[in-house]
């Protein structure tokens, strides 16, 4: 089975992706195609609130499928700037389109994302 691993972003070993946005210092975070496939049908996502502080490597939310519960870990340190409200009502977006409309949060960070895995390094990892 092959998974989509777009090379316009960076990855964490815990299967989150981080992608720079047009806004200065703001990155979007989501889970990878591989992660959504492992979880199966996602039915619920518990996300932080705007203004919450995240630390790299710390859990910041929970994704539930029918039979499993997974913590999601922040790939960067920063402040939550936006939360994807769509996925509260439509958690299936995370399954259907994990890299675009299924994003989870946007975080304002000073650390950048260059320290994370590249697409090819992540492909190696999984």
């Amino acid at each position: 089975m092959t998974f989509e691993i777009p090379d316009d972003r960076r990855y964490a070993e815990s299967h989150e992706w981080a992608k720079k946005t047009d806004a200065e210092g703001v990155v979007r975070i989501g889970i990878t195609d591989f992660a959504q496939d492992e979880l199966g049908d996602i039915v619920f996502a518990e996300l932080p609130e705007v203004g919450d502080e995240l630390s790299e490597g710390d859990e910041f939310g929970v994704i539930e499928s029918i039979k499993a519960v997974s913590d999601i870990y922040s790939p960067v340190t920063g402040t939550v700037e936006d939360v994807n409200g769509e996925i509260i009502d439509q958690p299936e977006l995370i399954n259907d389109d994990p890299h675009e409309s299924g994003w989870l949060v946007a975080v304002e960070t000073e650390s950048g994302i260059d320290h994370l895995l590249t697409a090819s390094e992540y492909e190696e990892h999984i």
């Binding site: 039915v43 619920f44 539930e64 499928s65 029918i66 039979k67 499993a68 519960v69």
Partner: peptide
């Protein structure tokens, strides 16, 4: 909503 329960969580 069984993910609330002990056998999963």
């Amino acid at each position: 909503l069984q993910t609330r329960e002990q056998h999963i969580r």
